[in-house]
Amino acid sequence: MLELHQVRKIYPGPSGPVTALADFSLHVAAGEMVAVRGPSGAGKSTLLLLAGGLLSPDTGRVIVDGRDLFQLSAEARADFRAENIGFVFQQFHLLPYLNVRDNVLAANLVRPVGNAQDRADELLSIFGLSNRARHVPAALSTGERQRTALARALLHRPRLLLADEPTGNLDDENGKTVLDFLADHARQGGTVLLATHDARVAEVAQRTVSLPTTRIDAAQLSKMGGS
């Protein structure tokens, strides 16, 4: 379902370029739930953005469901993302002026489907947000915001779900609910790629991928034969 081939991503930094991912390859099968672990700055978020086609790699290929994302036009990539990929961000990125229910339904603004209202209510119920449906994000706890972001990502049952620390802000009970749901999503054929520090995730994920503990500077990269 998701293939990353020799993907490299370098960011400019104040003391020279910093490599977030160096010739990284990964294959995640459909229905698989993979956890990506590593310390802060190891490139977990970069990996998710690359996998979602929001960030283009300097070299290498990102293939989702057989489609090389960066061979597609920007508009085609956006359509592909709307149809196949769900994102959950570490900072939630909820729309501050919409209530919980409308935030979940925001995905429907991009790709409208007929049963979106029912699906939204179902997700709110699963994540224990039904009684908070009319509240705006500012009135929610951190955990509630995280669950709202997750519900939004799942509205269209994406084939690939990319989640950045989905349980990082949740208590044990809520964290378990979310992880169970993600596992269930994978069991139903969805592919889940999680970036996490949470040890509990490893118990649920079928596989865990660890990223290097330190970033590589330009000189090290040169020794590796990179540009």
């Binding site: 956006a78 709307a82 994102f87 961000f89 900072q91 990125h93 729309l95 995905a107 603004l109």
Partner: peptide, 16 residues
């Protein structure tokens, strides 16, 4: 800005 990022992540095109 972050709102625009969200819309992008949700797959919104330029025109909308």
């Amino acid at each position: 800005a972050s709102e625009i990022g969200i819309f992008r992540a949700l797959g919104m095109r330029n025109r909308p």
